[in-house]
Amino acid sequence: MADEPVVIDNHRVLGVVPGKPVAGDRKVLGEEETVMVWPHLLVRHAVAALVVLLIVMVLALLFDAPLREIANPTITPNPEKAPWYFAALQELLAHFHPLVAGVLVPGAIVLGLMALPYLDRNPQLVPQARRVARTVFTIFLVVWIGLTLVGFAFRGPNWSWVWPWDEWHGEL
């Protein structure tokens, strides 16, 4: 023991003992540990909700919803565009018989998605153990997003190819 007492913040240190701090070990929490939903999850959800609302409110400030001329059964606009989320289907309709592009393909997609958990019986969750499922799904997503982009932005009058920077025909 030193002769001079050690003083920290006007408090004299009497001694140092080996071992754990009084509050116990600082626990390293694993991913599987559970936490209370309030406040941990709810706070995050509230922030997420506010961010989404902010995005919508800013979009609504910047861009007005479209309103074309009043409906007229005797004039079909050229090009006639479906809303963007059906642009992929419209692109398919220009190439295949409507029974295929308008009924069989969308029907197969919806039924296939519904059946997915019953077709993919591999219980693994780690990405490396489910390469086939991930590859198939990714290909489907890429093809569908590609078709949507083509139908939305790259098609002009008479459904002919246009470059979106030359002529803009996308409709929301």
């Binding site: 929490l29 991913e31 599987e32 540990e33 559970t34 936490v35 939903v37 309030w38 941990h40 999850l41």
Partner: peptide
């Protein structure tokens, strides 16, 4: 909501 969730969900 459940009462508790796993931390991964945060």
């Amino acid at each position: 909501y459940p009462v508790k969730v796993q931390r991964r969900e945060l």
